[in-house]
Amino acid sequence: MRIFAFFFRAITATAVVLGVASCGWTSDGGARLNELYHKDTGKTDVAADQGISDLADVLDDDVALDTPSSDEGGFDVSPGEVPELGLTGLWAVRVVQLGEISPISDPYPITTPDYFLVRIEPDAHAMDLIFCDEIPVVDSGDAGIEFTTRTTPSLRAALAASPLEVALGGGSMSLPAQKLMWTWGLKGIIQTDPMPTTSGDAKVFDQDDDGHPGVTVEVAGLMTGQRYMVKRAMWDLSAGVLSTDRIWLSGTLSYTLEEEPLGADPVMLAQKTPITPKDGSSYAFRRVGQMTCESLLAHLDDVFSTAP
């Protein structure tokens, strides 16, 4: 009987040891896809850039497609009914451009987010981004030194009236990688044209219809006033990656930004302050239900706080 008892003790011990060792055995197909197709293939660098190295981190166990809670920060950002496939619906968009600017002598980091709304129709080959606002933030590192630039209501209305067209893939199925040109106060200009430097240039027009050349932005800081200017931004968007819950469509971008002051009040504000792009710029589309530019701008943190 001793061998009998020994044998059963051995089986029990082995089972316990191996059982403990095997706790939490999981083969995660989602993580496997990430490992295979979202790291080095070049197809979906965006996902890797965003640190989505393990899909399990961003998925619920069994309900990956569940709609997220609508109660975030007290503001209803519920997307409503989310289509099972494709991008159809209303989206709030943020394009964040990181760079450096030297308004006096030292370079300061500048973050320039542009906010849009866009409604993607079924089977569309393009979408129109409706401008809501641009709110640049310069980090001078000194609370006493502030540089702010703000759009005027007439500029926002004028830009919203000229939506930015963005191509879609497969009939509203995807956002392919693409290059975009977005201009303020310019017409008939292409990417390779030199930027106009005078208000008399035929490519300059009073887009915000305020009697000043180009567009007018309000500047505050060491000096406060208005700058009349034109602007050309070139965005090179990566392909958009749709999150597993289909709420977020996101990617990276590289960009160039050219601004030419055409005048200012006071005139000292008409100095040229180039922005040098830095790595890390990105864009994020958030699927939303009901939203206007006003409600978006009033709840930016609520809408984009969980952006990829």
């Binding site: 197809k43 899909l55 990956a64 497969g170 199925m173 995807s174 392919p176």
Partner: peptide, 9 residues
């Protein structure tokens, strides 16, 4: 067309 349009687990 090279773009991820559906991810599900």
């Amino acid at each position: 067309d090279g773009n991820s349009i559906l991810r599900h687990k």
